[in-house]
């Protein structure tokens, strides 16, 4: 993944987290990675096809996903797992759409429906050198674009 694409992905992710979920990242870069790939996270992916093909993966710490769901719904109190999953998918959806528009302008690209990632994918993504890492008050964030 080119530096330019990574920069666009980082910039879009920060902006969307702020605007949609009221989450402000503290730092970005490999230093934000957790110690172990077995961190408590929820992930979602969105495939895009057309002139460019690829997949966007977004991983959020479970606590952060719950807080994002609370913020998006504007409610206090406990959030059930289904809403946290919904929040991760929607954050992935909005980041992907805005990233693709910023990175590829008006290229003819179709977005698919976001879906949840299984935890078995987490180790592979954790070790992917193209991953863009952020830290936040409620845990790490990983965003990754995979192109064939």
């Amino acid at each position: 993944m080119s530096n330019n694409i990574q920069h666009t992905l980082a910039s879009v992710t920060e902006s969307i987290l702020e605007q949609v979920a009221f989450v402000f990242t503290d730092d970005t870069g490999p230093q934000c990675k957790p110690q172990s790939s077995h961190w408590n996270a929820l992930g979602a992916e969105l495939c895009y096809t057309g002139v460019k093909n690829g997949i966007v993966h977004v991983w959020l710490s479970t606590e952060l996903a719950s807080n994002i769901a609370s913020n998006m719904l504007a409610i206090d109190g406990p959030i059930d797992a289904e809403k946290a999953h919904d929040a991760v998918k929607e954050i992935c959806n909005i980041i992907s759409g805005n990233f693709i528009t910023s990175a590829f302008q008006n290229m003819d690209i179709t977005l698919q429906i976001p879906s949840l990632l299984s935890l078995s994918q987490l180790t592979e993504d954790f070790n992917n050198p193209d991953g863009v890492w952020f830290s936040s008050e409620d845990g790490p964030i990983l965003v990754l674009v995979k192109e064939p």
Partner: peptide, 9 residues
């Protein structure tokens, strides 16, 4: 209401 910004779409 969509995330897509592609002008053709």
């Amino acid at each position: 209401i969509t995330t897509e910004g592609n002008a053709n779409r």
